[in-house]
């Protein structure tokens, strides 16, 4: 019988179980890079001189966790992962906007940089674009 069922994920909705296929592949790759970059940055910052810029370093850690969660959810796929990914991307979008504005307005709060400072300037402004690309992709796979 030539039945083409979703062999490896029978109970799931087709779109949501393939968050990492098609354009999602590129998204996973970019998120993975940022997960590593943000985690590395926050570990180095907290490991070397945590008292220098506590707010910035805490936010670096938050960003790192969010990138890791988003990467994992995109790779896992499925309904629950989709929901968590939407939450992660939303927090990420708010985070990069708020930190971006604050880093210009209240420079005293950020004596050292985070991934999200100046709207992700140190990373080619990708952190600013990424959450919206993520949300757009999640919308398409809804």
């Amino acid at each position: 019988m030539p039945e083409h069922t979703a062999a490896h994920d029978p109970g799931q909705d087709g779109g949501q179980s393939h968050l990492s296929s098609g354009p999602g592949r590129i998204l996973v790759a970019v998120y993975a890079v940022f997960a590593v970059a943000a985690t590395g940055r926050s570990l180095v910052q907290l490991g070397t001189d945590p008292d220098k810029a506590p707010v910035a370093y805490a936010l670096s850690l938050v960003a790192a966790v969010i990138y890791c969660v988003a990467t994992t959810c995109l790779l896992l796929g499925g309904r629950r992962a989709w929901r968590v990914a939407v939450a992660a991307c939303s927090v990420e979008a708010i985070g990069v906007l708020v930190v971006g504005v604050l880093s210009y307005v209240d420079t005293a709060l950020f004596p050292d940089k985070t991934v999200w400072s100046h709207f992700g300037q140190g990373y080619g402004f990708l952190p600013l674009v990424l959450p919206f690309l993520g949300l757009a992709w999640l919308r398409r796979t809804r």
């Binding site: 990492s20 296929s21 098609g22 592949r25 590129i26 996973v28 790759a29 970019v30």
Partner: peptide, 14 residues
């Protein structure tokens, strides 16, 4: 793992 141009795109990201 993804044998389309999108998969190859992941290599470009790398």
């Amino acid at each position: 793992g993804e044998r389309t141009r999108w998969g190859t795109g992941a290599l470009l990201v790398a």
